[in-house]
């Protein structure tokens, strides 16, 4: 019998667990290369733009040269103007995202788990979802005024829908076969949620988080363009009316950078939380 014991682990075709060290040693250079690849296109555009501006072929009123934008950018940072606008915008986006995102997450999971809840609320949510946000802003101003409340509410509305839809979808994509396992092992109701439902729905929830964050940013612009005294959206609006095109560009770039940064953070989270996934990662 002892001989068979020793043989069992020597079954052909068995794999040894991957050695983590070699994998992480290879990773940095790989990441760096991808980072370089991603930067090539924007770098090329900026270089052409700068050359065109120097040659005088581009109207500086419509497209101020990159170096003047950078100079203006530096100026706004040293005076602290940019930071104060950015700070208020970040606060609004964060508040709106937390409010709308958490309600969306909760309702999505709730409706996903219970059919009656879905029957009652889902049709209404799907209907409201199709209304363009710009059409709603006048109403929000009427109801909640020009203050912070209406802005935060508009942002939370934008953040709500993607979070709701994706967490709902996540719950519904839970493998019924694994639910049977949980039944046979007699998982408690709370363990079913924490050990099965949430982990299985996590890829969708994280996707919802990414979309929700970017929708919050978009809604932020809508909210700030409709009347604000501060914030990056206001900065853009104000600069446009004085034809300070460089400042408009800075505002746009701030949005792009903040959006990309928050997206990258969630993707980092994804990589950490979903390392167990066995899905196709694209060809090299």
């Amino acid at each position: 019998m002892n001989r068979t014991l020793a043989n069992i682990s020597a079954v052909p075709g068995e794999v040894k667990p991957q050695k983590r060290r070699t994998e992480s040693a290879r990773r940095p250079s790989f990441r760096q290369r991808r980072w370089v690849k991603g930067s090539l296109l924007p770098a090329a555009v900026i270089a052409l733009w700068e050359l065109g501006s120097l040659g005088g072929g581009i109207d500086p009123l419509l497209f101020p040269a990159p170096h003047t934008i950078i100079a203006e950018f530096w100026n706004m940072i040293t005076t602290g103007e940019l930071q104060s606008h950015l700070k208020i915008s970040l606060l609004r986006a964060a508040a709106g995202f937390l409010l709308g995102g958490s309600i969306g997450l909760f309702l999505g999971i709730f409706a996903g788990m219970l059919r009656p809840v879905e029957d009652y609320i889902d049709p209404t949510i799907q209907m409201l979802r199709t209304i363009p946000m710009l059409a709603l802003t006048p109403l929000f101003i009427l109801w909640f005024g020009f203050g912070e409340l209406s802005k935060v509410l508009i942002i939370s509305l934008g953040a709500f829908f993607p979070m709701y839809i994706n967490s709902f979808q996540g719950v519904r994509s839970v493998n019924a076969k694994l639910f049977e396992v949980a039944e046979v092992l007699e998982f408690s109701r709370s363990k079913q949620i924490t050990k099965l439902l949430i982990p299985e729905a996590l890829p969708n929830i994280l996707l919802g988080l990414r979309l929700s964050l970017s929708f919050a940013w978009m809604a932020l612009v809508v909210a700030e363009l409709m009347g604000a005294e501060r914030g990056v959206g206001y900065l853009i609006q104000d600069a446009r009316s004085f034809m300070q095109t460089a400042v408009v560009f800075i505002g746009v770039l701030i949005f792009a950078a903040a959006g990309k940064l928050s997206d990258s953070l969630v993707r980092l989270l994804e990589r950490r939380l979903l390392k167990w996934q066995d899905s196709y990662k694209g060809k090299n």
């Binding site: 076969k177 049977e180 396992v181 167990w276």
Partner: peptide, 9 residues
Amino acid sequence: FQEHRLFPW
């Protein structure tokens, strides 16, 4: 079960 049905995470 016929398939192992392990929790992949």
